[in-house]
Design a protein around this nucleic acid. Structure first.
Lengths: 244, 244
DNA sequence: AGAATAGTGTCTATCAGACACTATGTC
DNA sequence: GACATAGTGTCTGATAGACACTATTCT
């Protein structure tokens, strides 16, 4: 069959159906450690294995809507949730049931409630990023890509404010960066840097009710500013190993 | 129907089929101007309208493979082509025929041959980025996202070397940046900056056969180095308007 | 000769990071 | 009192960008 015949006669409806799913990498910070939301699968394939929450898109539903729905089914949250699309995965054998193309999403939220298991999941829980179980499908790869994206976006967008409350201190913001990047940052320099980026944070004029748990003065409170990009960016410390 | 019943009974095969396509934003530089590959649609919907090259994924084919196939059908090129995935688009009404989720790809190549129209396309041509026709579907949106991604990736990856030949001069590389970013750059500072980024380019020891068309000394030739990330990055000049 | 280009020298304002220090709070 | 934290001062090395200049090659 020539290329022309192949193309002219190609009709997707003549082939086995393709299904499209969304998989959500939902991140939050618990006790200073980055956590990801996982569900324990109740049905084959991979029954009993942990996986990213996700599911099939429904008729009339846009991809973003599907991701937000899947997330709210597990967490109940729809407010103050930042969600954005990541990559899509379509290896022919990535799901043993049928051809499935999955669109992955990244979500961030502050102090999330305990997750609720959906009916297709036996359980749902937040897992510390350094304490992950083996995941179903190609979800480890998806999670890896999502983490790298999250780390990079902290550098040049005000994304970190999505991990904290409506108002926050500079130290709280610093702990977000430290948790996601996994490196300690210099408190003094970080403080100055944040305040020097136009539109990143704006002062509320208030301070915390009391000092820190282990002492220290009351900290000034800030809220997210109107910047969509940070300029100059907050660059991660040198990562020589990633360059080549 | 409760959430549980809905989820437990949900079977994608019970719903109208979803089709998955790939759409490729292929960029090259012709005469110092960034160009994008477009095809003129031969069949409804949008017959006669220009669109991004693309098509349905085939059984057994990964997404990346599908994108490369679509690109080679129009250009005949498979070598020295950089291709990478961008976003996916799945608005329920983005194609009038049926539910179609499209995965977009970005491709770059140097001095491409004239495009060949596939049988599903009436024509194929390179369009200057400032001289585009009205596009079919949501392809203007896809193209906009692709351009922004390409511009950003020039900053922190050696992607520019994908637009030039195997060996190139620093000036050729500068013209890539100027074409894609659409701004003039300072030749002297650019030169020094490129050579200061470890692994971006490496000298071949050769020079051009002759000086430039309008005079000037022979330029040293370089080839792409082994860096995957540029550090420090080559930042675009200030873009105040994009920050908020 | 005149013009354009390759490549280098140099200066300045800015910035990241190191270090130090004060003030304020908790235990 | 001991200790941790918030926030600021200051210094240094690196860098981006402006400007200048020389050498080379084309028309």
């Amino acid at each position: 069959m020539s290329k022309s015949e192949y193309l002219a006669g190609y009709d997707p409806r003549a082939y086995p159906a393709v299904a499209v799913t969304v998989d959500v990498v939902a991140l939050t910070i618990i006790g200073g450690v980055l956590h990801v939301l996982l569900v324990e699968r109740g049905e084959p394939p991979y029954a009993g294995r942990w996986a990213l929450p996700g599911g099939f898109i429904r008729p009339g539903e846009d991809l973003d809507q599907a991701a937000l729905r899947e997330l709210s089914e597990e967490t109940g949250m729809t407010d103050r949730v930042h969600i954005e699309q990541l990559a899509s995965y379509g290896a022919p054998d990535r799901d043993p049931r049928m051809r499935i193309v999955s669109v992955s999403y990244l979500a961030f939220a502050p102090d999330l409630p305990d997750p609720q298991a959906g009916s297709d999941a036996a359980d749902a829980a937040w897992y510390g990023i350094d304490n992950l179980p083996k995941l179903a499908f190609d979800h480890e790869r998806i999670l890896g890509h999502a983490l790298e994206r999250a780390r990079a976006k902290l550098e040049y967008t005000p994304l970190a404010t999505a991990f904290v409350g409506e108002t926050f201190t500079i130290s709280e913001l610093r702990r977000v960066y430290e948790s996601v990047w996994g490196v300690p940052l210099h408190a003094g320099n970080f403080h100055r840097k944040i305040l020097s980026v136009p539109g990143f944070v704006e002062s509320t004029g208030e301070t915390t009710e009391s000092g820190g748990a282990r002492g220290g003065p009351r900290a000034k409170l800030y809220r997210a500013g109107d910047a969509r990009l940070l300029h100059p960016a907050l660059l991660r410390p040198e990562r020589e190993e990633e360059i080549r």
